[in-house]
Amino acid sequence: MINESNYHIYLDEFVAGLLDEEMEMEFVAFLDQHPGILEGEILEDASVSLAQSFQTNLKKEIPLDAHHIDEYLIASLEGDLSPQQEIDLARFLDAHPEFEQNKSLVQLTKVDADTSLVYKNKSSLKKRPAIYLYTRWAASAAAVFILGMLVFRFLGGHGIPDNELADTPVPSINSIELPSIRVTGESIQENADQPNLSQTNSPGKLVAESPVPAQIQEVVPEQVKNQEVEFYALESPELPDLNLLPLTITASNVMPGEQLASNATELSVFQWAYKKLRGKVGVPEIVVPEREIPQDVANIVMAKVAPIFQVDPNGSGSRIRIGGIEINRRSAR
């Protein structure tokens, strides 16, 4: 279909006499419908003497002679000759060494890219991953999620006034080794005699009990997405009784369970945590955009859990204390 975008190609063919009858009629009709379109057009000199039309000649048997040697040499360069034609061409050149120069000249028409020519602003074209999390925000969201674990554990559906929760004493701090994250202090295995968090008959009060060592487990995500910040989530959204099951910490950003899809990212983990928590900590439900939690809600939640958790900005990462466990986390490299 000839149009204003491609007509110049047909014009070139038209001038060279390469259009077949049907296309020529269509081109002439196009010119009739667009009077003046050729104004300023530079009509190419169709002096290139490729034996009238190579397109037509291809359908015929082109004689291998002095008049068509260039066509054969070009066809050879293009890889268009049959094995037999290549043999015939070689024999012809052997018999007519005066055409070796033609062969050399045709081979010079194979142009090589000049690799010294490079696009200078390559870095400006590149894009960063679409998910951006800032450390402070990430730390807040992580705290929200971790809070969910303890709220479920401590409240257990009985309900504890917020002020009692705020009065909860802070256990002593130890450090543990976590895979893939920066860790300070001693391993929890070396501090097995340190108190562990558990629920007592006195709601909201924490006392030392026989220790239940935290089990550290690194889970390889099924689908690791590009992300700026790693997220270390507490596993098991159903929150089993921690007195019976050891606390499991994973380095995965994929949460199993029906609440989260298998391809959930850290953002959806955060939002899930927020939805779980807002009723427990007295935060009214706020309609938030998908994949977001509001910063002010995160701040409220953090204020409520401050006596239990200590979340401090720490350079490129943050430190989170959960009972006797200290987790140092940092932005992904």
Binding site: A16, S53, Q55, I74, L77, D80, Q101, V106, T109
Partner: peptide, 28 residues
């Protein structure tokens, strides 16, 4: 890429190489 038929592409390439060859030959 260029919205041309295969035959048109082939013709253009052949004509281009022949024109270049003739130009290089004339300089020589």
């Amino acid at each position: 890429i260029c919205d041309l038929s295969d035959s048109q592409v082939k013709v253009y390439i052949y004509r281009a190489r022949l024109a270049m060859k003739n130009y290089l030959g004339s300089l020589q």
